[in-house]
Design a protein around this nucleic acid. Structure first.
Lengths: 182, 182
DNA sequence: TAGACGTATCTCGACGTCAAGATATTCCGC
DNA sequence: GCGGAATATCTTGACGTCGAGATACGTCTA
């Protein structure tokens, strides 16, 4: 039996217990941790992206294109939905990736409303060069978890996903490993 | 034995399995969900805050002050650390809360480097009026989880917190229930 | 008690995101 | 084949955050 050190959320729960002992803080104990740890993990992921000259939003877009398979092409709308961002944000992201030479953009000939965003060889190389370090970083972050804790976390998150109504349709092509969706 | 519908992250894992079957995506299965679900939960929390005329960052600050106990006063530095934001952001937030009449600001007489940010009665009322609906919202979000799933999620997150080195010192006074830390 | 260092807060400019709406194109019913 | 609805993308303005540095104040040491 290990006596656990109190974490930051425990501190918050104790503060509420002092101030408002009548409150039920059991949901906060879960949701507060979810938010906080997602943010703390993101900081660690960003560090590795920065070492490779990328912003995490850049890696997210490159990843979505890469895993969509040859010819590594998606529409802005598909990117919107996969990355949980608005269309304005997508336009802006594509413009900057285009300026870096990571993607190209061309109109679909059959349906001229549609734009196709395609990963360039440069973009693919940038993703490739970053991906291994990023994957190792994720593995390292979770390396301290016991098998049981990790299984709990995964099954708990999967259950939460079901409750949130998250379905495969939304993100089939995208949502990178390092994502912080809006 | 229930056959589970694939969620959005499963779609991403399958895409990688198709494109790069050699990759180990088991860490992505955990961290991708953590990020994605934190974002999806935040959207639901924001909805309730909006119904009460608050931004979630406003609620976060008011909550931190409220749970710090009478006289509901913290320094900008304490808010920085508790809310995981930079000092510039804190200054900006306080200015806007001051403009809405939710907090006041005064220099500490003993140490004139220090500022004290204090919740006004108006600010306390705004927090009070929002808090119950927010807590009910959090409870509702988790209501669909079985007891076992919820216990898994909590213990998995607690273990992750230990791995991330999150300690009570950082957030004792703050970090609201609705927080999206930077 | 002067200077050097440390601490607390604020300022400034840049950036990424969103919401709302504008524009262009296609689809559908008649 | 015409007009209206639907779809896809882009534009614009506002906002929240960050990083780096500036300023003000306190502490310590010789």
């Amino acid at each position: 039996m290990v006596s656990r050190e109190a974490d930051a959320i425990d501190g918050i729960l104790e503060a509420w217990a002092r101030e408002r002992p009548d409150l039920d803080v059991s949901a906060l104990a879960v949701i507060g941790r979810l938010s906080r740890y997602a943010a703390l993990v993101q900081v660690r992921l960003d560090r590795v992206f920065a070492e490779h000259g990328l912003q995490s939003w850049e890696f997210d877009v490159l990843s979505a294109l890469r895993r969509s398979g040859a010819p590594y092409e998606l529409t802005p709308g598909e990117l919107d939905r996969a990355l949980l961002i608005t269309s304005g944000t997508t336009t802006h992201r594509i413009q900057r990736l285009e300026a870096r030479g990571f993607v190209t953009r061309h109109r679909d000939e059959a349906d001229r409303r549609i734009v196709r965003v395609r990963l360039t060889e440069t973009g693919r190389a940038a993703h490739e060069a970053t991906h291994d370090a990023h994957a190792a970083n994720e593995t390292r972050i979770l390396a301290g978890l016991s098998g049981a804790d990790r299984a709990d976390l995964l099954s708990g998150l999967q259950a939460l996903g079901r409750v949130l109504g998250d379905t495969a349709d939304d993100a089939v092509h995208a949502l990178s490993e390092g994502e912080t969706p809006a």
